[in-house]
Amino acid sequence: MTLHAELRVRRGGFDLGVDLGVERGEVVALLGPNGAGKTTALRALAGLTPGGRVTCDGSAWDGLPAERRPVGVVFQDYLLFAHMSVLDNVAFGPRARGTRKAEANARALDHLRQVGLEDFAKAKPRTLSGGQAQRVALARALATSPELLLLDEPLAALDASTRLRVRSELARHLRTYEGHTLLVTHDPLDAMVLADRIVILEGGRAVQEGAPREVVRQPRTDYVAHLVGLNFYRGTAHSTEVRLDDGGTLTVAEPADGPVHVVFPPSAVSLYQEKPAGSPRNTWPVTVSGIEQHAHTTRVDLDGSPAVLADVTTATVAELRLQPGDELWASLKATEIHTYPR
């Protein structure tokens, strides 16, 4: 009961080559930066772009055009048909697949009821709010009872305040959907909240795959580390000493050997004006290259060996009178550093 896809799309200078597996009932998120090939992968699965092989429960979809694949798509800006009522939008799929009008309408109304919008059946899409339009798009995609539900940046078009609510609602709907779900997003929070498994796509290739908490704890690329907000290095471990590829050495608590990834949170880094005396911790000179105010902390971008991000309190900023170009000392407890083999 698995959907297997080997997607191969070559277009211009871009080359997508990714293998995906989605279990029945599972939600997989394809997470990656812009231009990584996420939307191309989604289009290839939907049959809108040729390329690759897809099998679902043993039947092959290769060569089938979009209209003959059992797929439902929620597009980024929903693409509701403006000249049709909400009900006609949702009934369009069943009608197109040969269901009689009365039955299609009944089914559409049922799907609208599930997303709490049966009162808007007669409304035109342009009268809906962003969150409502998203729910109609979901109802429309599910009304054909697809084997595979594809969601392209389903929350990107919403403003921040509605996104939170719509995200948890969407999570609830996805839990009750019994088919295979693939979600494409560049927002790590969407992926963490909605997906059972995350596939990181960079430059047309899957670079990391795993459960959300695994990906958060053990990033394997700079992009993922940046997404989850960790300092991230590659290095070679000799017992408790790790020599970093880009310069610098860190002392860690867990002994290891061979090539490793090294991560620690920016909040684990402390900054001093003078070199802290007599401590076994990691201590190295750094230069402030940037300061960024976040909600409750200040993130300081530091050059050095290694370069590092540090989160400090507003009090520290005031005390150290931080300015770009300032020379400081960074220190980091060995116990805060997490290493894992690469």
């Binding site: 979009a66 209209e67 798509v73 048909f81 403006a82 049709m84 369009f92 799929g93 197109a96 995609a141």
Partner: peptide, 26 residues
């Protein structure tokens, strides 16, 4: 916007149905 026609295709509409119900009204 051709993407509306693609949306219709993913809903199972043939090109003729898409033309009548989506493209032409647009």
């Amino acid at each position: 916007d051709r993407r509306y026609e693609e949306a219709a295709a993913t809903l199972g509409a043939s090109r003729w149905l898409t033309f009548r119900r989506v493209t032409l009204p647009g």
